[in-house]
Amino acid sequence: MASSTKSNAKSRSQSSKPSRNGDSAPLLNKDLPSTVDHLDLFKMMYLIRQFEIACGENYSKGLIRGFLHLYIGQEATGVGAVSGLREDDYIVSHYRDHGHALARGMDVNRVMAELFGRATGTSKGKGGSMHLFDVAKRFMGGHAIVAGQLPLAAGLALAQQYQKTDALTMCFFGDGSTNQGVYHETLNLAAIWKLPLLFFLENNMYGMGSSIERVRAGGIDFYPGIATYGIPALEVDGMDVLAVKEATDVAVGKIRNGEGPQFIEAKTFRFVGHSLADGQKYRGQEEVKEWEGRDPVLTFPAKLIEMGVVTDKEIARIKTEVDETVAKSVDFAEQSPEPDLSQIYNDVMV
């Protein structure tokens, strides 16, 4: 078990304050599985960061419309989690879904085109930012009714169980979704049916403008209470990509071993507002700055360099490559055609 994870077997509360002096040390041990490619993890986190920055810019230009929820700050959580999955596993996400979609390997151009509402988008421009889908990648949405994606994920897991595969479903949800009734319904259903479902809570401390402390009777830690559903739960530092990956590996291993649903709570933070319309009047800049001090897109490569795993040059090369990828995705989206109006009537029914 990673030093920076806790389980509900021996629960204790902890402060929401991020640690700045690394008492939850990232796992950069010699005995890490050789399948962990540190550069790939960094590259994906950096891609998500730059993609989201580009989204923000194009939202300001009016090229992306609607609601836009950026994943900036949470990259280590999504990348670490998704890196622990197989191709035949399903992923279900919430409305802050760009990071998960990219981590799953969805086409950067087509995701950007979807945000631009273009015909080349992943949903032909009919879905938008909150509704990204790629069934070939088993990425089953982008869902924008808070907690509504949880039973969908249970159904995908039910199908995997029914078909007697050892594939599983990973479902992301935020702290804001945990006060919906269907969250509790789904935990119970998954437990009594022993579904191969990994509940992945991204606790970023705020549901839109409401701090979790203000809206939840049980405080900021969820993982200790999950035992009441009979589901094992782990807490992990969501700013540490390797810790997230290791916790995911543990949970995934148990599910594939037939031990039923598992629960991971990653403590993380979005550095930006809930959406681009958010002035963040509900929280102090000091808190944001404190978390920004643990920015995984900065701290992870710094650590890799310090440990001698990679060089400055390799990091710089990756950044250049990713910057080009993101710039190209914006060009691709801008140059893509608007959907033909005849598309209005397609895809309603089979």
Binding site: M140, P151, A154, Q163, L189
Partner: peptide, 27 residues
């Protein structure tokens, strides 16, 4: 396995039906 009694959780079991259908079953 094919005749599943559910808890009194209409949202959860309807949603589970949708997910199972999306995965290729016919609930």
């Amino acid at each position: 396995e094919r005749i599943k009694d559910t808890p009194i959780s209409e949202q959860a079991f309807v949603g589970a039906g949708i997910g199972a259908a999306a995965a290729g079953l016919r609930p």
